[in-house]
Design a binder for these strands. Structure first.
Lengths: 254, 254
DNA sequence: AAGAGTCAAGTTGCATGCATCTCCGCGATA
DNA sequence: TATCGCGGAGATGCATGCAACTTGACTCTT
């Protein structure tokens, strides 16, 4: 039974579709934490056969969204507040390593240009007295680019892979929880602080101050920790968030 | 065609066998770097069907031994000296994080007992004036346990996963290249230095000195860097090592 | 003789068949 | 009535079939 939906693209397309579809289903909370992900059910839901579903599950397991079940298959994972905090700390630590390596490489002004431009663009966004939701989206976009560029400046594929994997953990990405602030009055201030750190990080790297860059990057990730804590203090915020249903904040899973 | 070799055990056995077999084939250099890993060939060699072979390849890709090929399939990866150094640095950084977390948790004496015992056992091994090859094996065993226990003391599954993944990278494990020293006169001295770091690390953690523990763990990983450099300076040492053929030290792959 | 086009063999990615195992509910029994 | 055993539906893990694609060699042309 060939799928009848319009399908173009090439290799790995079925796996990618299954992976994306599963990610959405899980983050939307349609597959509750602790529940086994039934492959036949996903076949029906996603329109691909079991082979890509299984492969997608394997990759999502590496990503951390699902875990191998005790007796075969995969179960949707639940996350504690400590898990999220640790994942953010891991990312911050590795970004610290990347920042130090970038600084120690003494990048040329030309090599630093993209990061400089990115910081300038972020400045323009944050400088506005009032930020619309579109501004927050733009901030997220530029922030992601900043972090990518930071890692690129480290000049190490190995480090890049490590940071990527850390940032791919659920809720551990550089822009996790930023959206929550879009509706808050104090939301802009958080961005102001984070942007100051971006600026200092750029300065430290351009001056070759490795230790300072490392400490700044690690501390920068901790604003995500603060966002996390703020979000946890207000459960209503979480329920509206993609993946909010995955959080097991107090009790263990029955 | 059911395999005729004696096969017991349960689920995932075929995948595990394929993964182990592929690892050995690659590290033994039978599959040269840059070459595509032909699934049918592996089916013949390993005695399992294509499905487990493919899954094993996927997992080895995460492990870093193979990488997805440009047009499907997987190719055996090659490693530069910089790759190895970076992988070790990543592991050291994450172990530094684990050490800091362990120290900040102020573990009780009981919680520290396994690490204490391990250090004592290592002391007994290293204290000997002359080390046999069996002594080096014992050192590797105890050293691995030390690092596992260090991570366990951090008390974070997320951090543990991150460290595991970093240490699973080829040549990045805590005991990589140790075996090379077994035949060297100065080999024992390297172990003496490393063991001193173990001792200091234990002390820092037991005193709750987080920053010191972090720095010590990161520095401790750098003895592996030194071992790596020593090995690289003597190509003969590498060729005898498992995986030595994966190193592309000077020229790019033709 | 060198280069480009073409064809065939081999490979990959996906779909599906099949045996075993797990899990859930039902009924029998003390 | 509660507990234990059991049976069937369904799921998993592995094997294999199949079409599209890649690759490599062979041939034809210049």
């Amino acid at each position: 039974m060939k799928a009848m939906v319009a399908e173009e693209e090439g290799r790995g397309m079925q796996v990618a579709r299954a992976q994306q579809g599963l990610r959405e289903l899980i983050l939307a909370g349609e597959l509750p934490p602790g529940k086994r992900v039934s492959e036949p059910a996903m076949v029906e839901r996603l329109g691909v056969s079991r082979t890509p579903v299984r492969l997608a599950l394997e990759r999502l397991a590496q990503e951390g969204l699902v875990a191998p079940g005790a007796s075969g298959g995969f179960v949707v994972r639940a996350f504690t507040a400590a898990d999220l905090a640790d994942a953010i700390e891991v990312r911050g630590t590795l970004e610290g390593l990347a920042a130090r390596l970038a600084a120690e490489r003494r990048p040329t002004a030309a090599a630093l240009a993209p990061l400089r431009d990115c910081v300038a663009a972020l400045d323009r966004v944050v400088a506005q007295p009032v930020l619309s939701e579109a501004d927050f989206d733009e901030y997220v976009r530029l922030n992601a680019f900043f972090h990518e560029e930071l890692v690129r400046l480290a000049g190490s594929g190995v480090v890049a892979r490590a940071v990527e994997q850390a940032a791919a953990q659920p809720f551990a990405g550089p822009s996790a929880f930023v959206q929550l602030h879009a509706t808050e009055a104090a939301g802009r201030d958080t961005l102001v602080v984070a942007q100051e750190q971006h600026r200092l990080l750029l300065e430290a790297i351009s001056r070759g101050e490795g230790a300072r860059a490392e400490a700044l990057a690690a501390e920068h990730a901790r604003v995500a920790q603060r966002r996390l804590r703020a979000a946890l203090s207000d459960r209503d915020k979480l329920t509206g968030l993609p993946g909010g249903s995955l959080l097991r904040l107090a009790a263990a899973w029955p």
